[in-house]
Write a protein that binds this DNA or RNA. Sequence first.
DNA 1: ATGTTC
Length: 484
Amino acid sequence: MSQIWKGPLERIDAFRWRIPRFLGSMRVEGLIFADETLISRVRADQALQQVVHVAHLPGLAGPSMAMPDIHWGYGFPIGGVAAMDIREGVVSPGGVGYDINCGVRLMRTDLDEDALRSRLKILTERLYANIPSGVGSSGKLKLDSRSLKKVLTRGSKWAVEQGFGCARDLERTEDGGCMEGADADALSSRALERGKPQLGTLGAGNHFIEIQVVDAVYDFEAARAYGLRQGMITLMIHTGSRGLGYQVCDDHVGVMMKAMTRYQIEVPDRQLACAPVESAEGRRYLAAMAAAANYAWTNRQIILHCVRESFEQVFQDSAERLGLDMIYDVAHNIAKFETHETGNETRRVLVHRKGATRAFGPGRPEIPEVYRSIGQPVLIPGDMGTASYVLRGTSAAMKETFGSTCHGAGRVLSRHAAQRAAQGRRIDEELARKGILVLSRSRKTLAEEAPEAYKDIHEVVEIVHGAGISKKVVRMKPLAVIKG
DNA sequence: ATGTTC
C-alpha cells in the first residue's frame, strides 16, 4: 500500500523543499515545509503524490503547499494548503476534509498546578460525565429543525443567545464563530437529521478535551497579550462538526464527481472532485460548508459551557472567578475567501486549509483587536502524551503561505497500524506512568491515538518556527485527557 | 474524521 516518493524533490533551504513541475500536467509546483529528518518520514507516505495531484487543479494562485504535519488524506493531503483564484479556480470538498471546521479552542484559568492537583481526578471525571463523547454520541440538547437552522446560520452567536457563553467568547473565536454565506437549505435532510442530536458532543478519533499546564514561555510579550503565563492551567477542546459535517462532505463529493464531466475538469484522482468556485455546485457546497462550520463552532461553544459548569461544580466557585476565559478558537479544516498580496497585486482567493491553521500576521482586520498588533494566536495540539503549543501568525506567512501554518503533529502510523502496535498494551496505564490521566470510552480509540502514532510535535513546531510562518509563544504539557 | 460499509 505505502509508496515511497520517487519523484523529484529539491531542497530549497533548511526548512523548505520543492517538487518542480516535472509533469507537463502540473499547473504549479509543490512546496513542502520540512527539515532533513522529517522529509524522510514524509517520503514514505503517499502524501507527496497527493501534493502533486493537487498541483493539477485549475486556478491555483500559488504552489500546492504542505505543512510539516502532512500525511495521507482523502484526495488532498492532510496538512495541505491550496489557494484558488476565484474566477478561474475550483472548490473541492476533499480540500477541506470530512470533518468540516474541525478545530481547536483554548481556555485559560487563574489556577496553577498546585491549586488543581488535589482535584484533578474528580474534575476530569466530572468533565467526562458532563460532556458526551465517543462515536455516534448524542448530547443533552435535541434540536428541532428551527433551532438547528439558527445554529447553521448564526453559529456561536446562537449559543450565546441561549445562555451558553458570553460576547467575549465570540470576540475570541475565528470569524466570531459565525461564517457568512451559510445556507441550511444546501444541506440534505440526512445531514440535518444527523446534526439534531449531536450538538455539544466531542466525538471520537483524535478529538479530545485536555487539561494542561504552561511549561515553557518563548515570547513573553505575545504570551502577555494572549493572557498566558508560566505555570498557568489551560484547557483545550478539539472537535468538529460531527456527523453533520461528514454528511455535507459526502453529499457534495457525490454531486461534484458528476459535475466535473460537465465542466470538463480533469483531475488525476477522483477524490479531488471539484467544481468552479462560482458554479452552482461550487456555491452550494460553500454555503453548506459554512453551515457545517457554524455547527462546529457552536459545538465547541456548548462544550465550553459544559466545561465551565464542570469547573463550577468541582471548585464550588464561579467560572468567572476561576478565570475560565477564552484565548482563541481556530478552524483547521475549512476553505475561506481572503484577500492576499501575490507578487505586487492584491487578490481575492479561496484558501483551502485541510489540517492547516490560519496564521494571520499583525495588523490583519480579521484578528481580534486585543491581539491584532501581535498576530493571530495559532493553536497547535500535539499527541496526548507530549505537548501542545501556542504560536503567533507572522507577516512572513502572509507573503509565503497565504497566512497558513501546521495544525498538529500529524500521523506517522495509520489508524490500523497504530492499533496493531498497541496489541496487548494498556495505553492509559502507559500514560498514567508519565503522570497523565486519560479517560476514554474506547480502547480502540486510545490505541489509534497512542503517542507513537504521531510525529514529534516539537520537531513539527521547530520547522514552522524556523521557516518563520508562525512563531512559538508558549508550550503546554498535558495533565489529563478525555478521549472519545 | 464518520450511526468506523446504505
